[in-house]
Amino acid sequence: MKLAKTYSYLKKDLELIEEALAEVIQAEHPVLREASTQLLKAGGKRIRPVFVLLSGQFGENYNIEDIKTVAISLELIHMATLVHDDVIDDADLRRGKPTIKKRYGNRVAMYTGDYILARALENITTLKKPTIHQSLSKTLVEVSLGEIEQMKEKFDWNQNLRTYLRRIKRKTALLIATSCKLGAITSGLSDKEINYLYQYGYNIGMSYQIIDDILDFTSSQEALGKPAGNDLIQGNVTLPVLFAMNNPTFAQFVQKTFNQSDSTVSDQDMKNVINMLKNSGAIEASYRVSDMYLDKAMQNLSKLPNNKAKATLENIAKIIGKRTS
């Protein structure tokens, strides 16, 4: 089953969110408006709004207007991060389409990211619950720190599993966990329930990122919208690489390939790295770690009352574990 199909009954609410997103980014300046709209139209799974919607449905005070506000801001924050990430990575393509950086240059990409983030914060300030802002702002700081850490740890072949897990927690899991938490807070759930949903989001986020890191090696350029092994080219030492590094031949080859003074990696070398990694058992080992997080996510869910939202969150966990793109 496809991810979108499992929450197809949220279509109406998601359409409302999509419309509101389009409205929020209507900048006065035509290029700013065009760049933001282009980013929005590039699509994406809208996974954060989905988690906000579903978590909100556990509460008695489900109010689509408030839930929508939270969902929009979280998606905008995610979008702003993507625009700036493309500047950092000097990326020309995202989801197979030219990035804002490629189309308009770094300066416009920076302004667009800053503009979108500002809109996200303006939007969420219509909600006054202090815990919403405390939680979201803390996450934003952590996400930024995570990105800085990621930079620090690039091409560091001696980093350990703990370093990697802390990095993906900040990079991905926290924003998903916060999506669940804010949906829950907005709908007036108890602290206990808020925490279960937060933990669910955290564990799902960890699994989601690990699978992303696996797919970077196992999926095609067509499906990824970027070359296979791109994370490694960028210097990001992900879980499959960490496991594969236990194999001395692979470790030696990778270090030799990526420490060349001429700073380029040939396509053939990259193909060899990917093949060696696939044959090292690293992919299977990475899936096992992902499964562990998915199990934990299921345990968190089991403590919540039975309803349609819970069944959907269970399905999402299952689908994420098996996703191929």
Partner: peptide, 27 residues
């Protein structure tokens, strides 16, 4: 690359400090 991230980090700090004092209007 770090200038991109540093700017984002400082923005996050502003939001975080004002959230701590619960000043949504200033945010």
């Amino acid at each position: 690359q770090l200038n991109v991230l540093a700017g984002d980090y400082y923005s996050g700090l502003y939001y975080s400090i004002l959230s701590e004092i619960n000043d949504v209007g200033m945010i």
